[in-house]
């Protein structure tokens, strides 16, 4: 469904992502794990159009999307939940969700999507008139995921959804991600919490200083000695 082909991304002269190739098949969760600054977020931002790869190609559903604007890429069916949640703080929960469906014109279908999201996240229905900035971190993460789902994306990009959340909230978010997977969603998950990420994903890629150093079936990566030592603290 999505493939990154030997992409490079530079910040000025510095290469943040070097020769990275990733394949994502329909209906699976692919995770990108690694330490802070390994290039995971940059890679994800390239998929959503916030960075243009300096070399290489990104192909989504057989079509090259590298060099497109974030607006165009969203219109093609890719939605991102950015790092740090980034809800619109001075807009209500409802308005945030409406913004997620900005490009949709089918009112009845959009209404249905909204009902599904409220079903997933009942707290968003209860607080739909509240300003998003006044929600707790976990609730903001739910809103950010809900907002991304409002566009009914074919591909969902999640950037560090567990970051800064209480352990009980992390479990809640993990449950939601596996529910989305069960419903057939395709997800790219960037996580520092490797234990969580490898539990949720089918395939995993390990990044170090801008390069993929290891990749494979998530289950196997979990038992890989190197991964255990470096990322799982075993």
């Amino acid at each position: 469904m999505l493939s990154l082909k030997d992409i490079w991304i530079h910040y000025g002269m510095v290469a943040a992502v070097k020769d990275v190739s990733i394949d994502v098949a329909e209906g699976e969760i692919v995770t990108l794990i690694g330490a802070n600054g390994a290039g995971k977020t940059t890679t994800l931002r390239a998929i959503s159009g916030l960075h243009a790869p300096t070399r290489g190609d990104i192909v989504f559903r057989g079509k090259s999307i590298s060099g497109m604007t974030p607006e165009q890429i969203n219109a093609l069916g890719i939605a991102m939940v950015p790092e740090g949640r980034r809800v619109f703080p001075y807009m209500t929960v409802m308005e945030n969700l409406e913004m997620g469906a900005y490009l949709r014109t089918d009112r009845t279908q959009t209404r249905k999507t909204l009902e599904e999201i409220f079903h997933h996240f009942p707290v968003l229905r209860e607080r739909n008139r509240q300003l998003a900035g006044t929600l707790s971190g976990g609730q903001q993460q739910m809103l950010a995921i809900g907002r991304a789902l409002m566009s009914e994306p074919d591909l969902l990009l999640l950037d560090e959804p567990s970051l800064g959340l209480a352990p009980i909230m992390i479990q809640e978010i993990a449950k939601i991600i596996s529910q989305l997977h069960a419903l057939g969603r395709t997800i790219v998950l960037v996580e520092q919490n490797a234990r969580l990420a490898l539990r949720l994903a089918q395939h995993g890629y390990v990044m170090e200083t801008g390069q993929i150093v290891l990749h494979g079936v998530a289950e196997e990566l979990r038992h890989n000695e190197q991964v255990q030592k470096t990322y799982l603290g075993a």
Partner: peptide, 21 residues
């Protein structure tokens, strides 16, 4: 809707673009 999108852009332009605005 367009007015709300304007507010979204004022609050977080990058995230607004991710919504297709």
């Amino acid at each position: 809707k367009a007015g709300k999108a304007l507010r979204a852009c004022a609050q977080d332009p990058e995230t607004a673009r991710l919504q297709g605005i």
